[in-house]
Amino acid sequence: MSRRSGRPLGFAEALDLPLSVDLYTAARAFGICPATAYKLIRLGTFPCPVLRVGGRYRIPTAYLLRTLGIEERPVYAVPLEVDAALANQPPDVQTHTTEVPA
């Protein structure tokens, strides 16, 4: 990956993407430079479907994630570390924010 393409896209960052992304972001996700991404589009070999919207390329995030092998998005109400810490506390220490003291 060249210096111009920036740092690779992380897993957590990939899960926070909007419905579609620009070509630069998709290139980061695949770990390639944007010039290579444009070349792959011209050759018709970009790894996932690409939409042309006006003069710009957009890549649907669902296709991008599927191509990267991310089939499902995990859904957690709280971060796992916080949930695990609460689960390890004794029952009398756990409090709920919805409880009203008597």
Score class of each variant (00 low, 15 high):
100 V>E: 10
16 D>K: 10
59 I>A: 07
86 L>A: 04
80 L>Q: 10
17 L>F: 02
41 I>C: 13
8 P>C: 07
65 L>G: 03
20 S>V: 09
4 R>K: 09
87 A>E: 14
76 Y>M: 10
81 E>R: 10
75 V>S: 09
34 P>C: 05
43 L>G: 00
69 G>F: 03
78 V>D: 10
7 R>C: 08
18 P>V: 10
4 R>Y: 06
75 V>F: 08
28 R>T: 00
70 I>P: 04
73 R>W: 00
6 G>P: 01
46 F>P: 08
71 E>T: 11
59 I>H: 03
89 Q>A: 14
83 D>R: 13
5 S>V: 08
58 R>V: 06
27 A>S: 14
17 L>T: 01
9 L>H: 01
52 R>Q: 13
43 L>H: 06
40 L>K: 11
52 R>L: 15
59 I>Q: 04
22 D>K: 04
66 R>N: 09
29 A>F: 01
5 S>C: 14
66 R>V: 11
99 E>W: 13
41 I>R: 06
62 A>W: 00
3 R>F: 07
32 I>A: 05
100 V>T: 15
47 P>C: 05
79 P>C: 14
13 E>Q: 14
40 L>A: 11
68 L>D: 04
58 R>C: 10
50 V>N: 07
12 A>M: 10
30 F>K: 01
81 E>F: 08
72 E>N: 07
100 V>I: 15
72 E>G: 00
20 S>G: 02
29 A>P: 03
74 P>S: 04
101 P>S: 07
50 V>M: 06
82 V>T: 12
40 L>P: 01
50 V>K: 00
15 L>T: 01
1 M>V: 12
